[in-house]
Design a protein around this nucleic acid. Structure first.
Length: 546
RNA sequence: GGGCCCGUAGCUCAGCUGGAUAGAGCAACGGACUUCUAAUCCGUAGGUCGGAGGUUCGAAUCCUCCCGGGCCCGCCA
């Protein structure tokens, strides 16, 4: 629709003004105007062209509109507001759109042109169950993946497992102490140990599996506890993700980077470039050469590599795997880290814009008007699983996409459980169920969708349903381009609203008028399909009955 | 001190690569069920888009400064 109008206008401009430069068309807006008096589609192209052509916008707009009025797809083409060109579609054009909606994959496109994109998200440490913050990142990543797939990108999903380094050792220590405790010893937990209840659970499991662990020397036991805990908790994380319907193509292990010597290799590479130096017994990367505020340690004076070091190796690995683009979904608390990683990427000879970082802001839970919090003292977060059990995966997914990912989200649990229109999940799902119910009812009475008499669909509400449904295509494109999956939820709420409005004004099944009934059923089927696709992108259920 | 993000209706937020009279939902008030699902719809009311300048034919949107809020600045991950 948008491309169609753009092409039409381009053609007209070429003929009228012998103007070939396409650049203004890229900057111009071709949109559905907010006010319906302004027609079905509108463009500001005349304003942009007026500069190039040295003519006043109104004149330019007028010439274009006169030319295009003759096209069969438009009922009228008018100039308003000093230079906007407003298009009103002809009945025939609506009919074509509707047929495309019902019969084709109208929502897919090739915007991404086969670009290979690596989407990395969640990447939680296997040192505890997922919390709600992880969940938000998971849903954003997962939905972005679906959106990019529909727009012609070649996305891949990856979870980076931090299964090496200090936090894993600490996990082992924490479990070991709990084992001692379970064994009747009185223990004082180390300051920085993981305190959560789940640690005791892991300890109990380990003790069940290998009761002899208590007889081992501390170092040995801790090592075993680390290994066991890591596996156990990773499994738990995978279960949590499954509950949320989030999947991955690759599970990438940090430890494997060390085992294959990739960390060492990449540091040597940087050393050869003269970007790594020694100071105070530690190894530093000269990130300041690429805009960072200060240089960063990659190997500590005690001989251990930093997390940053393996991250450099990880990103080097991503580069070597040949992706056109890498997108990382991170918690907002990591934002100070972006510059450093981008500096490393540049140091490795890659354009730092190759890496894009999507920051996920905090999620706060509210119930009964009060914030839900876990014990702050123990540094615990609300587990994702708990939230899913409260409101269900559908509501969790939908609510996580109710706001742009970079703004803090207040999650109202009572609202998510409400079965009124105030709850947007129900509002949208209800629209779908309502449509199914009409179609079923019609079937009982012997009516079926048919495109034979679509000319009867000429009311304001019907036309709006058609254009609104078709807009899904452009919403998906915008969401992909701007990496903003929440646009789809907003779109669905709007489409549902348009549908409910139609429903309250027009009756679909009408025994007196078979032609109109079947044409409307055809329309309804198109809308139903559109909502279903939209919900599928969010991976939220589209119920036939509620 | 440096950096990033945010400030839009009573509340929660859309809109932000500049475009026409700034939009939803909730809350408030008044209506619509002998009807394909009232889990819905219609109407009323509600705004100096934090403030001040600037750029422009045109600014919620871009630039500068100020005010207010959040987050980050470790040989942690």
């Amino acid at each position: 629709m948008k491309e169609f109008i753009k092409e039409k206008v381009k053609e007209a401009v070429r003929e009228l003004f012998k103007f070939e430069n396409e650049e203004p068309f890229e900057r111009a807006s071709f949109e559905k105007p907010k006010k319906k008096e302004f027609g079905d589609f509108s463009t500001n192209i005349a304003f942009l062209l007026s500069r190039e052509l040295k003519k006043n916008p109104f004149e330019v707009a007028k010439e274009i509109s006169e030319k295009l009025s003759q096209s069969p797809q438009f009922e009228k083409v008018e100039v308003a507001g000093g230079g906007f060109i407003n298009f009103t579609f002809s009945q025939g054009f609506y009919e074509e759109l509707l047929k495309e909606i019902v019969e084709k994959e109208f929502y897919a496109s090739n915007l991404g042109k086969g670009e290979k994109v690596l989407l990395e998200y969640v990447s939680a440490n296997p040192t505890g169950p997922l919390h709600v913050g992880h969940g938000r990142g998971a849903v954003v990543g997962d939905v972005l993946y679906r959106i990019m797939k529909l727009t012609g990108y070649k996305p891949e999903r990856e979870f980076y497992i931090n299964d090496a380094g200090r936090q894993i050792k600490l996990l082992g220590i924490s479990i070991y102490y709990r084992i001692k405790e379970l064994n009747g010893e009185k223990v004082e937990l180390p300051e920085d140990a993981y305190q959560g209840e789940y640690i005791t659970e892991v300890a109990r499991e380990l003790l069940k599996k290998n009761p002899k662990i208590v007889e081992l020397a501390e170092e040995e036991a801790v090592k075993e506890a680390s290994e066991f805990g890591k596996e156990f908790l990773l499994k738990r994380i995978k279960e949590d993700l499954k509950e949320l319907r989030v999947e991955f193509d690759n599970w990438f292990s940090e430890k494997s980077l060390y085992e294959k010597g990739e960390v060492e290799k990449v540091l040597n590479l940087l050393k050869e470039k003269g970007l790594v130096y020694e100071k105070e017994g530690a190894l530093w990367l000269k990130t300041t050469a690429f805009g960072d505020d200060k240089d960063r340690v990659v190997k500590r004076s005690n001989g251990e590599y930093t997390y940053f070091a393996s991250d450099i190796a990880y990103h080097y690995n991503k580069i070597k795997r040949g992706y056109d683009k890498a997108i990382n979904v991170w918690g907002a608390d990591h934002h100070g880290y972006i510059k450093r990683v981008k500096a490393a990427i540049e140091a490795l000879g890659k354009d730092p814009d190759w890496l894009e970082v999507i920051l996920i802001q905090l999620v706060k839970l509210f119930k009964g008007g009060k914030e839900v919090k876990m014990s702050k003292r123990k540094g615990e977060f609300v587990p994702l699983r708990w939230l899913i059990n409260q409101v269900g995966a559908d509501a969790v997914r939908f609510f996580f996409l109710l706001k742009r990912h970079d703004t803090p989200l207040d999650f109202d649990i009572d609202l998510a459980l409400s079965t009124k229109s105030e709850n947007p999940v129900y509002y949208v799902q209800y629209a779908h169920a309502r449509l199914c119910s009409i179609i079923d009812k019609a079937k009982e009475e012997g009516f079926y969708p048919s495109p034979d008499s679509l000319h009867l669909l000429n009311s304001q509400e019907e036309r709006e349903l058609i254009t609104k449904s078709y807009l899904l295509k452009y919403e998906i494109q915008k969401a992909a381009q701007k990496r903003e999956p929440h646009r789809i939820t907003y779109y669905l709420i709007e489409l549902s609203s348009t549908l409910h409005k139609f429903y309250n004004k027009h009756r679909v099944v009408n025994r007196e008028n078979r032609e109109l009934t079947q044409a409307r059923l055809y329309l309804i089927e198109g809308v139903r399909k559109t909502i279903e696709i939209g919900l599928k992108i969010l991976n939220v259920k589209a119920p036939r009955r509620m």
